[in-house]
């Protein structure tokens, strides 16, 4: 398995280089270094000299990808792309274009994102699996039918509606929790209740329906018939046998998103005023802060690759038949 992991890590390098190039191109198609300078220096009374000076100080006065005026390797290395990208592979994110340490900012802002994402994942998983097993238990009854209809309805509603509706009902009408805001420590709980509940409810439709399908597929297999023939109750069959065997696809879905929990949710963080990484990224895009954008895209890519790798490893843990080679 070690060889497999090393091979996968090596495969990741060209992927990350590709992602980096793509981010770079997309960003600079829309924003020139001059645009970035103007954005940072402000709208009023900005002189050309100030723009040139800003670009020079941050290394944005070099060619983007190829420096025709340089000698030898300098044609590649004396470019914005090379200068700005190389350190990422050492996980040195450097400073944002406004001068702040990106690594420190990420380390500060990932906690509020995790404070929402982790409970939503755990509670959501428990709720969705429970509902899906119950629906599977009541399969082919009107409860099954109407549950599926309800799931489709829940899936069809925009997450924005859940947020605004939740804030209106729970915070504005019932006055149970603050509408928005955040705090540190134990005081954060009252701010997290509503976004977590909304996150869980928003995921019930899709999650329950997906898990129901998985369980129904398992239910018709021979081992389930054998278990029933042994006289086990339906509850025991479902929760002990079916659930265990449906874990591989569930794990696939869960483990792959685990690393991405760090990157936060844009809409939820924005509406609830949570200072997480989702809002950090969108603020950077709006402020044309390339240093943060490339750092966040790079981090997201690394985490996604890590998630896929963890998924593969988790297969071997839940299913001894799977061998990584």
């Amino acid at each position: 398995m070690t060889a497999y992991i090393i091979r996968r890590i090596l495969y990741a390098i060209p992927i990350l280089i590709g992602v980096n190039i793509l981010t770079f191109l997309l960003f600079f198609v829309l924003n020139s270094p001059e645009d970035m300078a103007r954005m940072h220096l402000g709208e009023k009374r900005v002189t050309e000299g100030a723009i040139a000076s800003w670009k020079a100080e941050r290394g944005y006065d070099m060619p983007l990808l190829y420096n025709a005026g340089a000698e030898g390797l300098g044609k590649i290395s004396e470019t914005i792309f090379f200068e700005k990208s190389l350190k990422l592979f050492r996980f040195e994110f450097g400073s944002s274009d406004s001068g702040r340490d990106i690594g420190h900012d990420i380390s500060q802002r990932m906690w509020p994102s995790l404070a929402i994402a982790v409970p939503v994942l755990i509670i959501g998983l428990a709720v969705n699996i429970t509902f899906a097993l119950l629906i599977a238990f009541f399969r082919a009854t009107y409860i099954d039918l109407w549950s599926v209809v309800l799931c489709v309805v829940l899936m069809s509603i925009s997450s924005l509606f859940y947020i605004i509706g939740g804030q209106y009902l729970v915070s504005k009408l019932l006055h149970l929790v603050p509408i928005s805001g955040y705090d540190t420590g134990i005081s954060a709980i009252k701010f997290l209740v509503l976004p977590v509940i909304i996150g869980v409810i928003g995921g019930i439709g899709a999650g329950t329906r997906w898990y129901r399908t998985l369980f129904l597929e398992e239910i018709n297999k021979d081992y389930v018939r054998t278990a029933r023939a042994k006289g086990l109750s339906e509850r025991v069959v479902l929760f002990r046998h079916v659930l265990k065997n449906a874990m591989i696809p569930i794990l696939t879905g869960v483990v792959v998103v685990l690393p991405l929990l760090f990157t936060g949710s844009l809409i939820t963080e924005s509406f609830f005023g949570i200072p997480g990484l989702g809002s950090y990224t969108i603020d950077a895009i709006n402020n044309q802060d390339f240093a943060i954008v490339r750092a966040m895209v790079f981090l997201g890519s690394v985490l996604y690759i890590l998630g896929l790798l963890l998924t593969d490893i988790s297969y071997t843990l839940v299913d001894p038949r799977v061998r990584l080679s």
């Binding site: 603050p178 509408i179 928005s180 509406f271 809002s279």
Partner: peptide
């Protein structure tokens, strides 16, 4: 001063006196 990026929570918190 609290950060409120969205107008709906900001407005509702004003109406609640916060």
């Amino acid at each position: 001063y609290s950060l409120e990026k969205e107008s709906i929570p900001r407005w509702n918190k004003f109406l609640q006196g916060w």
